[in-house]
Design a protein around this nucleic acid. Structure first.
Length: 919
RNA sequence: GGUCGCUUAGCUCAGCUGGUAGAGCGCCACGUUCACAUCGUGGAUGUCGCAGGUUCGAGUCCUGCAGCGACCACCA
């Protein structure tokens, strides 16, 4: 049967069938009964739901591979391992996609109207949405697909509605006028997290505001005290100077502020200022927000267009005047000359108008961070508007406590601090979005003024009985459904068995970028609505970046398509490469211009596993395999050694998985399989597996090989499920031992202290030393590959000598040694060396290599290098050179001299070894 | 400005509780011995950012300095 296996691993030939077989075997699904009645311990992960319109990218590839590794590992441990999949309706993102499609037909969403547009989005989502879940199957994800959820499902919408009403009834949801981040293009509010600041070179303009005449006397005195904001037009009017990066907002100024303890301006507080271009008069007020040290210590206050200024207005009682429309054009409150202008046009116009009146004092360069819309990149406009908010402070308390007392852990741990810092300074959450796609806010307004917040759609007003109710037009922030995900997927608020069995979940794996957006809010929701944490371990993985360190993204075109990688090298290769690169807390670098190079580690390893398995299956033959216990007496050193190593590796793998040290798991398994099983065990055991080998030793080797491969495949399975299960399924099985029906549910190997064999490990270590040293000496002295050599050892211990005597066949095979003399000796021409164990090696070379020719070659080499060295030393002795050449050149020359000197010394040593002895 | 983190081989990074510096990729040489050239064997390359300190011993702990980065908050 083994002849069927190709010499190269071809993942396309096995992966799809394997996945189908698992699905048909029903290995992904877990029922509540298994936990509640069967007593199985659950292990649950809810997937971070990708956007319903998303296409798999490498970030998903990484995150979902991590989750699948954990899920598969726990499943093998016997846990009721459940991974719940699903997608997110992704408000703005999805609406944008459909709006763009409409735009291609020259239509806007307004042309369709709300209901038709939402229906359009639905049909788009039904047709093309969720393809990412299909793509997850190609990378091997073992989600329980029967539990797939969507944040707009009826069940989940019920949870959203319940939560809104619950919070509203607790006075934790309120509606208020606030300055929010507004995207004038998307026409919606953005949370702080959705407004992405970007450093930009801006300008700071200095504007002059004339003081009302009655304040001139005070102004003159203030100027005498060093009030730098004050100035005068010759002998005429007094004015003050304020600075701004957004001059157009001055049209909405309703005050000028100074710090209350700023002595310079104390007499001017309460005085009036004539606001240019508007004909309005505004007061000077005192507020602690002003930094007396910055600029002139005087600030223009625009409450409707700046969050800080809005707060100043709240404290000082000055007016709030909105001069812009929702498109960020100048609105009806702006002077007629500017009305209708876009904000940037208005900026120019205002500057020109001020300049014309001599009120522009100048400008200076100014670097500051300007927030942009995370979706469309438009400059965000702070905007006064009526929005719904959640009071977060009360929700944050238990969620903060959970981190502090260790109920919830963060990996890497540094995120704990970041999380706690954010929670301690939490702000209210603006949850309304001016979109059509999403959960409609469950609030109705009656003409009588009554506000109805209800779990069911009301038909009439409970206050006046009118049926003229109007629902709030806004929808909820996408995260308002996402934060309920860990329990809404199990049917909450309905009491049910799934919830009992699977909530709280265990691990949440995601990117640190959404720690605040999502993770923190889920924790708060868990405590508020179910009184318990939604999960107990938060694992935050790194970002996938390109060779230049840039985040992989569609817009930069530097992404690598995971499906392409699967097509080229297989899912196993991709999974291994990703896990092998994700050391805790570090980002992953892949080169999109060299996909093959990026994934060669995984591809090569998968191929290595395949070929080792292929060889083993061929060598094992068809006959029955004996159980380990029955061949115990016939085990050879290498058998005991590799079984001990397997045990050790299993222990390390378990420990590292528990601590999310996935990179270490991958690396350890790679070295165990390649560096120990393949490089040593298989090589050592080849002779013993031959048909004509001694029966007892052959059976011991067969049993050990099966045991080791079984163990190795189990350990590798979570990371490389396809190649391992394909080979595992073909392994012959020890007689009388029960064989699990599939590797995917085979028991995870747990380490046992009594399976560690210290003696075997130590002896094997010295044996490996010996082989490596002989190989090295052979190469160094140019012994031809096929030539056999004799090895003399002195200073051996009896056990070492015995071990070597037993391993002569192996030494022949591994190092082309035809005889080992352990009684010391070893005179004559040859190579000497000392092992770590202190044993001395002598390799006679007389008759093995042409000593005279080697001597001649060495002498030639030495004189050649000596010439180079002499030249270099001459240069270094030359004062002209050392004095005038650039320092780095001289340093390089010194380095060269040192290296050459070392080389010569080494060659001389070798020469002496060959010459010294009498031949 | 605040907080956190990073600086180890040409590149990307491991090195978890202090005990003789590691991996992958790349590089050099040799190799068609029947699992694998997506391979084998051997090799070269590091004053572990700089300066101090604790210790028998420090890449690992402490202090300072320099450079880089992330996040948060932003000063008009």
């Amino acid at each position: 049967m083994s002849q069927e296996l190709a010499t190269r691993f071809d993942p396309r030939a096995i992966e799809p069938q394997r996945y189908r077989a698992w699905q048909e075997g029903g290995y992904f699904g877990v029922s509540a009964a298994e936990v509640l009645e069967g007593g199985r311990q659950p292990y649950v992960i809810v997937i971070p739901p990708p956007n319903v319109t998303a296409v798999l990218h490498m970030g998903h590839g990484l995150n979902n591979t991590i989750q699948d590794v954990l899920i598969r590992w726990r499943r093998m441990q016997g846990r009721a391992s459940l991974w719940v999949p699903g997608t997110d309706h992704a408000g703005i993102a999805t609406q944008n996609v459909v709006e763009r499609l409409l735009a291609e037909e020259g239509k806007t969403r307004h042309d369709l109207g709300r209901d038709a547009f939402v229906e359009e989005v639905w049909s788009f989502v039904r047709e093309t949405g969720g393809q990412i879940l299909e793509q997850l199957k190609a990378i091997g994800s073992t989600c329980d697909w029967d539990r797939t959820r969507f944040t707009l499902d009826e069940e989940l919408s019920r949870a959203v509605r319940e939560v809104f009403v619950h919070l509203y009834d607790k006075d934790l949801i309120y509606r208020g006028e606030y300055i929010i981040n507004w995207c004038p293009r998307c026409h919606t509010a953005l949370s702080n997290e959705e407004a992405e600041p970007e450093e930009s070179e801006g300008r700071l303009w200095h504007l002059r505001y004339p003081l009302a005449e009655e304040a001139w006397t005070a102004a003159a005195e203030a100027a005498g005290r060093g009030a730098s904001a004050l100035g005068r037009d010759g002998d005429a009017r007094w004015y003050l100077t304020v600075s701004t990066t957004r001059p157009e907002t001055m049209l909405g100024d309703t005050g000028v502020a100074v710090h209350p303890s700023d002595e310079r301006y104390r007499d001017l507080v309460g005085a009036n200022v004539e606001l240019p271009l508007t004909g309005r008069t505004i007061p000077i007020v005192a507020d602690t927000h002003v930094d007396p040290e910055f600029g002139s210590g005087m600030v223009k206050v625009t409450p409707a267009h700046d969050p800080n200024d809005f707060e100043i207005a709240g404290r000082t009682g000055i007016d709030v005047l909105n001069v812009m429309t929702e498109d960020a054009h100048m609105g009806e409150n702006a002077p007629e000359a500017f009305r209708g202008l876009d904000r940037f046009e208005a900026r120019e116009a205002v500057l020109a108008a001020l300049d014309a009146q001599g009120l522009l004092a100048g400008e200076s360069a100014h670097t500051h961070a300007v927030p942009h819309c995370y979706r469309c990149h438009t400059v965000v406009e702070p905007r006064l508007s009526l929005q719904w908010f959640v009071k977060m402070k009360p929700l944050a308390e238990p969620a903060l406590q959970a981190s502090r007392d260790g109920t919830i852990t963060f990996t890497p741990e540094r995120w704990k601090k970041v999380y706690e810092h954010w929670m301690e300074n939490i702000r209210d959450w603006c949850i309304s979005r001016q979109l059509w796609w999403g959960h409609r806010i469950p609030v109705w307004y009656c003409t009588c003024g009554e506000v109805i917040v209800s779990r069911e759609d009301p038909t009439s007003c409970p206050a006046c009985g009118s049926d003229q109710l109007e629902q709030d037009p806004d929808v909820l922030d996408t995260w308002f459904s996402s934060w309920l995900w860990p329990f809404s997927v199990f049917g909450w608020p309905e009491e049910n068995e799934d919830l009992d069995a699977f909530y709280p979940t265990h691990t949440l794996s995601t990117a640190p970028e959404i720690l605040f957006f999502w993770v923190a809010r889920m924790i708060m929701a868990g405590y508020e609505f179910l009184g318990s944490p939604p999960f107990t371990q938060v694992y935050l993985h790194g970002t996938v970046r390109d060779a230049m360190g840039r985040k992989m993204s569609k817009s930069l075109g530097n992404g690598i398509d995971p499906l392409q990688v699967v097509e080229m090298f297989g899912a196993d290769a991709m999974r291994f490469t990703l896990i092998n690169s994700c050391a805790v807390g570090t980002d992953i670098f892949l080169d999109h211009e060299d996909v093959e190079g990026s994934f060669s580690v995984g591809r090569n390893f998968a191929n290595k596993i395949w070929n080792a398995g292929r060889f083993a299956l061929m060598s094992l033959g068809e006959g029955p395999v004996k159980p380990l216990a029955t061949v115990a007496d016939a085990l050879e050193l290498e058998d005991r050694w590799i079984l001990s190593r397997l045990n050790h590796t299993a222990g390390a793998a378990t420990e590292n998985l528990e601590r999310f040290r996935l990179h270490e798991v991958a690396e350890d398994l790679y070295h165990f399989f390649w560096g120990e099983v393949c490089d040593w065990y298989l090589e050592l055991v080849k002779g013993r597996l031959a048909e004509d080998a001694h029966q007892a030793t052959r059976e011991a080797a067969r049993t050990t090989l099966v045991t080791v491969l079984d163990g190795a495949f189990r350990l590798l399975h979570p990371i490389m499920p396809f190649v391992t299960s394909e080979l595992w399924a073909r392994l012959p099985w020890p007689e009388g031992q029960e064989r699990p029906e599939d590797l995917i549910v085979a028991a995870w190997p747990e380490a046992a202290p009594d399976r560690t064999d210290e003696d075997a490990e130590a002896l094997m270590g010295t044996f490996r030393d010996l082989v490596i040293e002989v190989r090295r000496l052979r190469k160094e002295y140019g012994v031809a590959e096929g030539t056999r050599v004799t090895v003399h050892l002195s200073g051996t211990t009896p056990s070492f000598a015995a071990m070597v005597a037993e391993r002569e066949g192996s030494l022949e095979r591994l190092a082309r040694v035809n005889e080992v003399v352990t009684s010391g000796g070893g005179d004559g021409v040859g190579a000497h060396s000392v092992l770590h164990s202190g044993v001395e090696i002598f390799l006679p070379l007389k008759g093995v290599i042409d000593v005279d020719r080697e001597l001649e070659r060495l002498r030639g080499e030495i004189s050649r290098i000596q010439d180079l060295l002499t030249g270099t030393e001459k240069r270094l002795a030359n004062e002209q050179f050392v004095g005038r050449a650039p320092e780095e050149v001289v340093a390089k020359e010194r380095e060269k001299a040192r290296a050459l000197g070392e080389q010569v010394a080494k060659l001389r040593e070798k020469l002496e070894a060959l010459e010294g002895a009498d031949r």
